[in-house]
């Protein structure tokens, strides 16, 4: 990538860090802190109408303008970070944990379990993600636990496929055969022999999948099928303020930029992870 060549490198804690990577990590850290401390730092309660005008412009006191009801946009975006980051993180954790564990089990066990699991999850993968979300929301309604589970289920097949492909390679190594001959259990094999050898690519995959989930969650919320009012994540904020589009109101632009800043940062961070961390043996 161009950025890697252009960015200067500096040494910190024994690793060379890439400037773009550091900047991306800082953006992610900032959004994480906002997500945790949002209720303490918002200037106005999110439900309060503080502006006489709707779709107000940016001005002192209302740094990001006001939304379609005259509520403070800055507060709403800060609180939206909680839902977008929180739900996506929960979903990606469930998806990657289940996918990776199943993938490793399938690779180690092989046989019919592997075949059935792979065939079934491949079929799941053939359902377009947005459509799956639509159908589930139509069937059981939309709430935070349903959203987390749906998003997790949609991305389990991908995590499974990725982890299984990695684990199958490790599974042919001599030390696995030795461990098998020693009579170790499957749990030991996947936990102590395979996982340490695939953990770094799995973590990079975790980041990418987080981006997919943020995008899908925002997409669903934008369609009105994600978080329901009065709760609002970034996608829902864009939806409720879409009426401000013809006036180019900050209320519709800022939440979009928030999503973009988060997803682009995660992508850049993964691209620019220090080589040493990626290559060092576990």
């Amino acid at each position: 990538m161009t950025t890697r060549a252009a960015a200067s490198r500096r040494s910190l804690l024994g690793h060379s860090y890439n400037l773009v990577g550091v900047a991306a990590a800082l953006v992610i850290l900032a959004w994480t802190l906002v997500a945790i401390f949002a209720p303490y730092i918002i200037p106005h309660p999110i439900g309060d109408i503080v502006d006489d005008d709707y779709f107000g412009p940016m001005r002192q006191g209302l740094w990001l303008g006001s939304d379609y009801l005259g509520r403070d946009m800055l507060s709403r975006v800060l609180m939206g970070a909680r839902y977008t980051v929180g739900i996506s993180l929960a979903a990606v954790s469930i998806a990657c944990f289940s996918g990776v564990v199943l993938g490793m089990i399938a690779a180690v066990t092989g046989g019919w379990l592997d075949t059935c699991l792979s065939r079934f999850l491949d079929a799941m993968n053939s359902i377009p993600s947005k459509l799956f979300g639509l159908v589930v929301v139509a069937a059981v309604g939309s709430s935070i636990p349903v959203l987390i589970l749906t998003l997790a289920v949609i991305y389990i097949p991908g995590a499974y496929r990725f982890a299984r492909a990695l684990a199958v390679n490790i599974n042919t190594m001599d030390f696995i055969t030795v461990a098998r001959v020693r009579g170790e259990s499957t749990a030991y094999l996947i936990g102590s022999e395979i996982l340490p050898n695939i953990i770094r690519p799995v973590l990079a995959d975790f980041g990418l999948r987080f981006v997919f989930i943020v995008l899908l969650l925002s997409g669903l919320s934008f369609l009105g099928l994600g978080l329901q009012p009065p709760l609002a994540d970034w996608g829902a904020l864009v939806r409720e303020n879409i009426g401000g589009l013809p006036f180019a109101a900050p209320a519709v632009i800022v939440p979009s930029l928030a999503i973009a800043s988060l997803t682009i940062s995660v992508n850049l961070l993964i691209d620019n992870l220090p080589q040493k961390i990626r290559d060092r043996d576990a």
Binding site: G235, V238, L245, A248, S256
Partner: peptide, 20 residues
């Protein structure tokens, strides 16, 4: 850049650019 942002953002940005 286009891959990293949601589709609706591409849509809203094109509306802003071409229509507004």
């Amino acid at each position: 850049g286009v891959i990293s942002v949601p589709e609706f953002m591409v849509a809203t940005l094109s509306v802003l650019l071409f229509a507004v």
